[in-house]
């Protein structure tokens, strides 16, 4: 059954998660452009949500967000909540993607970046992170979303391949498949 989480698949997803966290906390901070960095875990979660459904996307988004939270000053669970909700929402929209084109992945990555950024700032303000609720955050969200869109070109194929319920990664699965 497509989407089933087997032990092998779980191991592959865990290794992908560790790889993305290592990249996010070591290399990505050096690749800051205009003051922003991409959220690799978010983009990977969204890729899985689009291809394999909102359950897997939300679960991976939660795990990736929680791992990112470990290295931030903001409360533990804030990025986890934002990533999980974003991946779930994008996964729910997968059926409306009827004409996939090359620009769809960057567009989804960027759109997810905007949504996740707004959720992060919004929930952050609710739990006492008032400094996030500023006009400057909008600029940060938009720039980071563009960066998310760019890295989606690389992260989408990687995440979809790793999360493929059948080893091999090139065979079909449910959901959106780019032509």
């Amino acid at each position: 059954m497509a989407g089933a989480v087997t032990v092998v698949r779980l191991i592959r997803l865990t290794l992908l998660l560790v790889l993305l966290v290592v990249l996010q906390t070591t290399i990505v901070p050096h690749l800051r452009v205009a003051g922003v960095v991409p959220d690799l875990g978010l983009v990977a979660a969204v890729a899985m949500a689009v291809r394999y459904g909102p359950e897997l996307g939300a679960s991976f988004g939660f795990a990736a967000g929680l791992a990112t939270d470990l290295f931030l000053q903001t409360p533990l669970g804030l990025a986890a909540l934002a990533f999980a909700l974003t991946a779930y929402a994008v996964g729910r929209l997968q059926n409306s993607l009827v004409r996939p084109a090359w620009w769809v992945r960057p567009a989804i990555g960027a759109g997810a970046g905007v949504l996740a950024g707004l959720l992060f700032v919004g929930f952050g303000a609710v739990v006492g992170q008032d400094q996030l609720f500023a006009l400057h955050s909008i600029r940060t969200i938009l720039l980071a979303a563009v960066y998310d869109g760019v890295v989606a070109l690389v992260i989408f194929p990687l995440a979809i391949s790793v999360a493929d319920p059948r080893t091999g990664g090139a065979r079909g699965a449910t959901g959106y498949s780019p032509s």
Binding site: E55, F62, L66, L85
Partner: peptide, 30 residues
């Protein structure tokens, strides 16, 4: 229903973690 259950579980877990971390600070579980 399964999708909704997973989402609700993830949201509740996130909110629990945020609450624990906000209240516990560096000495708490978080």
């Amino acid at each position: 229903n399964r999708r909704r259950t997973i989402l609700i579980l993830l949201v509740l877990t996130s909110i629990t973690l945020i609450t624990l971390d906000t209240r516990g600070g560096d000495t708490g579980i978080g």
